[in-house]
Design a binder for these strands. Sequence first.
DNA 1: CGGTAGGTTGAGCGCATTCAAGCGTTGTGG
DNA 2: CCACAACGCTTGAATGCGCTCAACCTACCG
Lengths: 276, 276
Amino acid sequence: MLSTQIATAAHVTLASTLATSTQGPARTLLRAPALPVLKSDAAANQRASQHVAETLKLLIEKLAPQRRVVHAGDLVYQGGESFGHLYVMTSGFFKLVNLSADGREQVVGLKFRGDWLGFDGIANGRYACDAVAMDTGEVLVIRYDALFAACAAQPALMTALHEAMSREIARDRDSLMSVCTLPADARVADFLRYWAESLARRGLRSDQITLRMTRAEIGNYLGMTLETVSRSLSKLARAGVIVFAEKGRRDVQIPDVDALSEFIQHCLAPASPVLQ
Amino acid sequence: MLSTQIATAAHVTLASTLATSTQGPARTLLRAPALPVLKSDAAANQRASQHVAETLKLLIEKLAPQRRVVHAGDLVYQGGESFGHLYVMTSGFFKLVNLSADGREQVVGLKFRGDWLGFDGIANGRYACDAVAMDTGEVLVIRYDALFAACAAQPALMTALHEAMSREIARDRDSLMSVCTLPADARVADFLRYWAESLARRGLRSDQITLRMTRAEIGNYLGMTLETVSRSLSKLARAGVIVFAEKGRRDVQIPDVDALSEFIQHCLAPASPVLQ
DNA sequence: CGGTAGGTTGAGCGCATTCAAGCGTTGTGG
DNA sequence: CCACAACGCTTGAATGCGCTCAACCTACCG
């Protein structure tokens, strides 16, 4: 048992030999010291968190936007609806869901405090997906035309807007890379890593996270079935990389975020260097 | 033989019954009339093509940008390089390649005339991927600070910029949906459909396309191996949805773009309604 | 004409899916 | 208060899609 699986990783073109050599002495998932967060990250997270707060303050001061409170399941906007507003989250968790013409449903993004919602609507004048609240939260409601006008006079606003869009583009590409190059176990680990990092960057505690998504939603987001998600989480728990809370399986403790990265590398290792 | 495969499609949550009923009388891949493009699409393509031309003209007039000619293999920018410019394609074909810290390589985007390159660099001040020319082409070199300043006085510029970013975000999500919800054969068909549509929207002929990517590159982009790409293309050719040029397998004829969509639906069909 | 890169196809295997059973938690109504 | 249904989660067994490995082919180029 403890069936350590060989990397699947659809087509790793070049430099895959590198991945092997950089992995170090193989299999050190359970580390003794386990410092909760790297110091360098802590500083970066502090800055990122402050940056989010400043951007929110800027928007509130310059645009005096309406605020809208949402509860789990509420739609901020819906695919097909005519575009007019952008939304900036001050709290809560959202998912973005694409719906194809033939009825396929796909979670294409997860959003946290400070993130913007609605960029997909600018180009075509209609929103291209649903923005669904996964918990109680609040968004700033920003009229696009008002923002557009304000940008001309307030460079800081335009900077904030462009930064947010740029970050979203970069993040979407990382998602695609994760789905395309990682086997199921590593994808789940990467998902947890991303979630923890997202919380950390916003100044929230990241060692104990509450997944607000069902296994089915996670699976949809990661391109796998809910059973595979469940199995991967169990495997992560067995490896000690995550710890489930006593009651219920929605809460996940992450003693050491770096162990998640190591687990991913372990999944990508071509073959078991030592024994399994 | 002619092993028509059942749908894999990782997790199609709801409304998947719809997909079945909307498919019509099942299996009509080879249609007699085969009009090259739907009339409604033709009008939309005309408009889109004109819109691209107008945007390029606007940029040239307002910013008098440098032009840069590139050849196959040239890098417009490279991941890690410090950000300073955006680029707008006037001709050619580009791919965007992400490189992860551990050496995984992933094609995360394909770009055509009128598309912008470099958005990923705005947020962090460094480009997050490589932009590689796949053919001879030309880009407008646009200093971001100059564009930023010009946007304040020229709303049309800001509109063009935001539209381009929005379109990119929406497109990236479609890519993710394709990778997550479609089986290999359908993914290849969707890739061809996207490529043909991209050409059509720019006023280029879309019934005869020259793939400027190797099977390995296509496979990387779609999250599968080059062998699977080859097999899927062969299957599409056997079904008559595409036709290979006599000499070489890089040129692909697409007699009827809609047949590609039908093929995708066929791949998604829960089970063979009639016989296989 | 040999060398190389890209492409096709077959055989076998394995990861992830499908199908299925069982468990824990929550919520509702008798 | 307790059945009982509904929902989410876990785990096992079997199947199959897509991957790996391999051989062979074509086109291109020095």
